Amino acid sequence: MTTRSRSNKKGLLAKYWGFVPFTALIAALAGWIPQVAPVMILALAALSSYFFVFGMPVWCGAINRDGTSCRENAHGLLLGCHRRQHKWQKVKMRFARARWAKLNRGLWTQPRESLATIGAVVAILGGVAAFVPLPWMPK
């Protein structure tokens, strides 16, 4: 009987650490945490955005040679998997207008990707909201 080594396995919190600042950001924007400084909201939004765009474990989604989507593990919405060509393909999708439709389709393929996309949009909007006075926020 073989035993598994836990030293190379990441814990759940280590994989999904970005949901902690995201939850705090939502709570601060909703007014559940009283008197939060705009700098703190901006920091929470930056951490959350970084996690969703570059750190959340998702599928790669790059197009394989046979026309199917790659199902290898990747980190974040904008990075590809371990294959160098897939990383370049995802970079090209960001800058070529004709490929934005393919990139957008890849952002909504699975619930995990959809959650990362919505989280990134909310975190970016939260960063903007740090400088806009919201009516329910205390002054």
Rank of each mutant, 00 (worst) to 15 (best):
M1Q: 10
T3R: 15
T3G: 12
R4V: 15
S5L: 11
S5P: 03
S5N: 13
R6D: 15
N8M: 12
N8Q: 12
K9A: 15
K9M: 15
G11Y: 08
L13K: 08
L13H: 09
A14W: 10
A14Q: 15
K15H: 08
K15N: 11
G18I: 05
G18W: 02
F19C: 05
V20K: 02
V20W: 04
V20E: 06
P21S: 06
P21Q: 05
F22H: 05
A24F: 15
A24P: 00
L25S: 10
A27I: 14
A27V: 14
W32P: 00
W32V: 00
W32M: 02
Q35I: 07
V36S: 00
V36C: 01
P38W: 07
V39L: 13
V39W: 13
M40L: 14
I41K: 06
I41E: 04
A45P: 01
A45I: 01
A45F: 01
A45D: 01
A45M: 01
L47M: 14
S49N: 03
Y50M: 08
F51W: 14
F54I: 04
F54W: 15
G55A: 12
M56G: 01
P57Q: 04
P57V: 08
W59V: 09
C60N: 03
C60Q: 04
G61F: 04
A62S: 11
A62C: 08
R65K: 06
D66Q: 05
D66G: 04
D66W: 01
G67C: 00
G67M: 00
T68A: 03
T68I: 00
T68Q: 06
T68L: 01
S69R: 10
R71I: 03
N73G: 10
N73T: 13
H75S: 15
H75A: 15
G76I: 06
G76P: 07
G76L: 07
L77S: 07
L78T: 11
L79T: 09
C81N: 05
H82A: 12
H82K: 10
R83K: 14
R83T: 10
R83M: 09
R84N: 12
R84Q: 14
R84L: 13
Q85H: 09
H86F: 07
W88S: 13
W88D: 13
W88C: 07
Q89F: 12
Q89R: 14
K90S: 08
V91I: 13
V91D: 13
K92V: 12
K92T: 09
R97V: 07
A98T: 10
A98P: 03
R99W: 14
W100V: 02
A101G: 10
A101F: 04
L107S: 09
W108F: 06
W108K: 05
T109N: 09
Q110K: 12
Q110A: 05
R112L: 10
E113A: 13
E113C: 08
S114K: 11
S114Q: 12
S114L: 12
L115S: 05
A116V: 07
T117A: 09
T117G: 04
T117C: 06
I118D: 01
I118Y: 02
I118H: 01
G119T: 06
A120I: 01
V122Q: 02
V122F: 05
A123Y: 08
I124W: 09
I124V: 15
G127K: 02
A129C: 01
A130M: 00
M137G: 00
M137R: 07
M137P: 00
K139A: 07
